[in-house]
């Protein structure tokens, strides 16, 4: 009964639109409302669209790189949990800041940092004699540049979950490990990591789902005019471009369905695999 308000919201704003999207993917849209049934037409276009292939590859690359945030955040969280660590609150705030910052502000700031001619990143590189590329407009580097921002931005959220996970590990285990002669590094790999696997699993699932929906960084940092767009556009970006900029709502819905299927399959696969490596203490 107490769940009712939340459940109602979920049905109205999440579940119902999902079914609407699936329905719309079989239709063709008029300019200002109105649609007609077009059967599998959108899916036929989808299979032949080379931009969709690019988008799938780009999304996969971004997801893979963003997953790096998981081990990094685990290490950061473990370091912050060390007994006697000073200034934990300051570090925690610093790492968490990107999570509560507007994505537009994040994107704009990083865009300046990555500017090929006047950016801070290339200025620092030039100090050590490296001639940095035009990070965001070079098709070869743009996807890595935005993925790095993605990693940087998701560390804070992951870290908070890991921190509370580490708090839940009884001190006895560490004391026992220390008695057996395990150093800090060994303790991390043989005590912290195994007992943290439920948190790691949760964070991994969330990271993959979020990375599959990457849009804001591509839209704000690269954009349609950039020569790097083909090598950075993600499925959600393509969805936006086709649906909102090019007014092809039905086709955009088909891209949405493709993304939905990819998310379902990847998440289901992770749940199957978890039995092999997640320890529920």
């Amino acid at each position: 009964m107490l769940l009712l308000p939340a459940a109602a919201g979920l049905v109205v704003f999440e579940i119902w639109p999902t079914f609407q999207t699936i329905y719309y993917s079989f239709t063709s849209w008029g300019a200002f409302g109105g649609h007609t049934w077009s059967g599998l037409e959108n899916y036929r276009t989808l299979i032949a669209d080379s931009d969709v292939v690019h988008a799938v590859i780009n999304t996969a690359i971004i997801t893979a790189i963003t997953l790096l945030a998981v081990p990094i955040s685990a290490v950061v969280a473990a370091l912050l949990s060390l007994p006697g660590m000073r200034g934990v609150t300051i570090y925690r705030t610093l790492y968490f800041l990107p999570v509560v910052t507007l994505p537009a502000a994040v994107a704009l700031t990083w865009k300046w940092l990555f500017n090929g001619d006047y950016g801070l990143v290339n200025w620092l590189l030039s100090k050590v004699g490296i001639d940095g590329p035009h990070w965001l407009s070079d098709p070869a580097t743009a996807i890595f540049a935005i993925s790095i921002v993605g990693v940087w931005g998701s560390i804070g959220y992951n870290m908070v979950i890991f921190l509370s996970g580490i708090r839940g590990i009884p001190v006895d285990y560490y004391e026992a490990a220390e008695l057996d002669g395990a150093g800090r590094v060994k303790q991390f790999f043989h005590v912290t990591v195994p007992l943290l696997t439920p948190s790691i699993f949760f964070v991994t699932v969330i990271t993959v789902i979020n990375a599959l929906q990457a849009f804001d960084l591509v839209y704000l940092m690269v954009g349609q005019q950039s020569p790097a767009i083909q090598r950075t556009e993600t499925l959600v970006y393509l969805f936006y471009q086709r649906g909102f900029a090019e007014h092809d709502g039905g086709y955009a819905a088909a891209i949405g369905v493709l993304l939905l299927l990819a998310t379902l399959i990847l998440t289901a696969a992770q749940f199957r695999l978890q039995r092999r490596w997640v320890h529920y203490g």
């Binding site: 090929g116 001619d117 035009h134 407009s137 790097a228």
Partner: peptide
Amino acid sequence: PTLQQTTDT
């Protein structure tokens, strides 16, 4: 300037 430069600035 190249397209990359005019995209960045």
